[in-house]
Design a binder for these strands. Structure first.
Lengths: 107, 107
DNA sequence: CTAACGTACAACCACATGGTTGTAGATACG
DNA sequence: CGTATCTACAACCATGTGGTTGTACGTTAG
């Protein structure tokens, strides 16, 4: 079962896609503008954009014959929060261990 | 060129691996303890652990004949910070746009 | 010592991924 | 209008991924 989180992390697991994301977060760009920036075919870039789109990290809006790709910062926030949750679990565990150590010291 | 960030995100792009990570962050577990928790072969779980290890999200330490897997919270922090950077880029952009709009209003 | 356990790793398979080229449909420009 | 541009998508290929089974080896228990 491929969940949403899978798609987001998978989308981010490629340097080209991360670069595309940082570009379109700064300011929207058409697919062909993006394509010109990388040493690969238009179709390849188009596929990368599609992966980012499936993960809801970017969205596309028509402007004439162009398709403008824009960054969706909300999805990024969600992932970041998810990682913070993992960190929180670890923090709690560390606190628990520390508490046990202190109890031992008092005994 | 596969960079370190690729490996980390790829490691996190699988529900089983994220689950393993959350388990071993709570407390270290042997590979076979982990293997018993999932409906797949020992070898499959072993591979998942290897992927997490390559991404430096977990580490292994011998304890007798067992191999204890432990979560490496530092790597998580690095990824979280990386995502925060993307968010920061967007925040700056939003601030820039707002400034422009205010300038227009004054004119 | 022998048997059981925990691990490592190779070989194999089905399927996904990242790339290519080619074709075709909209839309804008001269 | 015709033509160039931007996009979409299918077909194809090499390689990677997630799973399997089987074998081998070190370590512990009896």
């Amino acid at each position: 079962m491929v969940v949403d989180t899978d798609r987001v992390f998978h989308a981010l697991a490629d340097a080209t896609r991360r670069d595309i994301l940082s570009r379109v977060i700064r300011s929207g760009q058409s697919v062909s503008e993006l394509a010109r920036a990388y040493p690969m075919s238009f179709a390849a870039v188009q596929k990368h954009v599609a992966v980012l789109e499936q993960a809801a990290l970017v969205s596309k809006t028509r402007r004439g014959r162009e398709q403008i790709v824009t960054g969706e910062v909300e999805a990024l926030r969600r992932v970041s929060l998810l990682l913070d949750e993992y960190e929180e679990i670890w923090r709690q565990r560390a606190a628990r261990i520390e508490r046990i150590l202190q109890e031992d010291e008092q005994a």
